[in-house]
Structures are given as C-alpha cells and as structure tokens.
Amino acid sequence: MEYERVRVRVEFEECLATPETNKAEPTKVSDGCFEVDFDRTLELDINTNEQAVLAVSYPAIRDALASELSRVSKKKSKKQQV
C-alpha cells in the first residue's frame, strides 16, 4: 500500500541578530523553513516559548498544505493528460 507521510520537527537554535534584523514576525527563509526570533533572556519563559512555536507553526502548516496540494493536483493533471 502507498501512503503519504507527514513529518514535522520543531527546532530551537541559538542565533545572533540585532533588534533591526531579528525576525519578530514568522518569516519564510530561503530553505522553505519558517523562523521567528525571541529574546534569549526569555528562553526559560514557558509562555514566550509556547507563543513562538505556535506563531511559526501556523504559517508553516498553511504553506505546507498549499504547496503540497498544488504539487499533487499538478501531478494528477499530468497523469490525466497521459
């Protein structure tokens, strides 16, 4: 049987940025990932961590759904063409 598998991994990494260059809002970067930055002094703040993960997850999920459905529909159209 053939299946579609969905995999998700949320990563936290330390980074350097200035107040002008940090990603305060979820931003899609060149490798297709979504990133958001928060002040490292809040790394133990549960609320900040939760909100950051949720804030970056939803746009990522929407983007993944839109891309995948677009890809699959294109594939299906091509099959129909054949």
């Binding site: 939803y58 746009p59 999920i61 929407r62 983007d63 759904l65 839109a66 891309s67 459905l69 677009s70 529909s73 294109k74 299906k76 159209s77 091509k78 129909q80 063409q81």
Partner: peptide, 27 residues
C-alpha cells in the same frame, strides 16, 4: 481551514487535444 486561510496555487496543463486541464477542477 482550521489552520487558517490559504490558497492552493493552480496550474494549467495542456490536455493534448488543444485544450487545457486546470488543477483547480480537481477540487
């Protein structure tokens, strides 16, 4: 959707008979 509003990009594929197939029509 439950995850928010998003748009599935569409494609038009030639059907080989001079017409086009729209991916939108699969939904």
């Amino acid at each position: 959707g439950e995850v928010g509003r998003f748009t599935i990009a569409g494609h038009e594929v030639a059907d080989g008979n001079g017409g086009t197939l729209r991916t939108r029509d699969l939904f």
